[in-house]
Structure formats: C-alpha cells, structure tokens
Amino acid sequence: MTEQAVDVTAIMLAHAEGPMAGPAFHSLLDAVAHAREAGLIVETLVLLDNPDAATAEAFGAAERYGVRVEQVSYGDHPLVRNHAAAQVSRGYIAFLDGDDLWGENWLVEAHRLCETDPGRVIAHPEVNWYFDQSTYLYFLPDQTDPEFDVYSYIRVANPWDALCMAPVAAYQDIAHIKRSLAEGFAFDDWHWNMETLVAGYVHRVAPDTIHFKRRRAGSQFAAASANKSLPRATPIMDYEWLRQHEDSGRPHAVGDVRSAD
C-alpha cells in the first residue's frame, strides 16, 4: 500500500456473490467519494477469494475507479481479513463484504467517532438493515451505554459483526481466527470482538449510520449456525477473568491483555 498519510483503507471481500457484488461495490465507491469530499485520504482494495466467474466479472472495471483488485485463495473470510490488514500500515481499516452495502456517510461518521479517542475506538453502524431471506432492523449497542452489560451479553451472543472500522493495530495485533466447522468452531467476528474487548478497545456506535446486510442460504454465517458452531475460547469466557476485571474498577488499557492464568 502507499506510504502517504492514509486516513482510512476501505476493503471489500468477495468470493461468490455474483451480480450482487456490483451494487455492493458501488456503495463502497459512493462512501469513498463522500469521504474524500470531506477531506479524508482514503485508499481502496478489493480482495477476491477464489471468486466465481460472475463475481470476478463484477469487478472487471474496478481499476478504472482507482481501486486495486487482488485475487487470493484462502477459502475463508477470516484469513482474507488478516491478509488485507497486513498490507495496511497506518490509519483505520473498514471492511465490506461483497453482497452488503454501506450508507454513503459511513466512512466519514465512523472516522469522526474513532478520532474521538484515537487508537482505542472501534466504530459500528447504528443500524443493520437485513434483506433477502430475512428482513429486519438491528440496532447495534454501544459499549459505553450504561444500560448495556457488554461482558455478560457477549458471553452468550455477538452484538457486533465484522463490518466495522478499527485502527490498523487492532487487526494486526488481534488476528481473525480460522474457522473449523469440523471441530465446531466459527464466528470469527464474535471471537475478535471478545479479544479486542480484553485488549481494551471500546466498541462504539456511529450515529446516523446504516449498513444493508444480506441474509442468504449457503453463507458462511448460515453454515456456522446450522452446524451449531461456537467461537473459540477467550479470557472473557473465564469467570475468574471477569471477576478480576470487575474488581479492577477500570477498563484495560489497549494492549493490556489479561487472563486467569
């Protein structure tokens, strides 16, 4: 990636989304254009992971828009995210999946929120609007909301997905874990959310932002749910860690990763 002072790197992952990848890609372009108009320096990258022909075709003209396209062969979204993060040296990373869409103001508002506490905030949209096989709205919780008991909640359910904006260090220091449905492990975003909490990052909601997320049969989420998979273990799952955390009376500093061991 370039060595200039980049504010945000917008990264799309795609593999078999077919024609839906086109609207998703244009939502990224619209958000990037809006961010650049607001004065942000934004780089763009599309990673095609073993793409089918229709998905690869959807990005045939990407370079015309100044977007770099790279093909990889991981066959697993978590590993593609790690590959992408390793190429970024500064600023923030914002991920978008190949059949989801960003609201136009997402990059601007997420970056504004992250800059309120640089290097510590992970930004999420205020609302996820799900479409296709399921249609509903999900209002994401903000960790700083006194009514939200994040440590109790995240032990049993995942409050945030992977389409967030976070400091580069959060992705490089805390890798996404490879899924293994055969062993019953998946939900890398859930695991990553817990690990970032342990490391002291704060998950916030950017006001007036929205993502449009597709729910479809055959997705990695659907496969993991059908398999009744679980995230891999993290310190938050240990009651002794939770007790020590509560007894400390303060959130951990970034990088202060503790466990009951």
Rank of each mutant, 00 (worst) to 15 (best):
S248T: 06
S89T: 12
L113P: 01
S89E: 11
E147Q: 15
D49M: 04
L28R: 06
P19K: 11
P23W: 13
V67Q: 11
A226W: 05
L29V: 08
I41M: 11
I210L: 14
W106I: 09
A54Q: 10
H124V: 04
K178N: 14
L79Q: 15
L140M: 14
A58G: 03
A14E: 06
R204V: 06
T116A: 01
R232F: 06
R215V: 03
H26R: 15
A21I: 09
D208F: 12
S180C: 12
E17G: 00
Q4G: 00
D142H: 13
D76R: 15
A223C: 13
L13W: 13
E37A: 11
A233Q: 05
A94M: 11
F221G: 03
F59H: 03
F221M: 12
I236E: 00
R215E: 00
V254D: 07
D149Y: 10
E195C: 04
A175C: 05
D261P: 04
F187C: 03
R232H: 07
A162N: 15
F187G: 01
A31R: 08
F212L: 14
M165Q: 12
L181M: 00
Y74W: 13
Y151P: 05
D149R: 12
M165R: 03
E17D: 07
D30M: 10
P207Y: 07
T234I: 09
S73A: 10
V46Q: 05
A175T: 11
N128C: 13
S225A: 10
A206N: 08
S229P: 08
P78L: 07
G200T: 08
V150D: 02
P51D: 01
W106V: 12
N105L: 08
D261Y: 05
E104L: 12
D52P: 05
H211R: 13
S225M: 10
P51W: 03
L47F: 10
E3R: 11
L181I: 14
D161S: 13
L113V: 11
D256K: 13
F95H: 10
W241P: 00
L242K: 02
A56P: 12
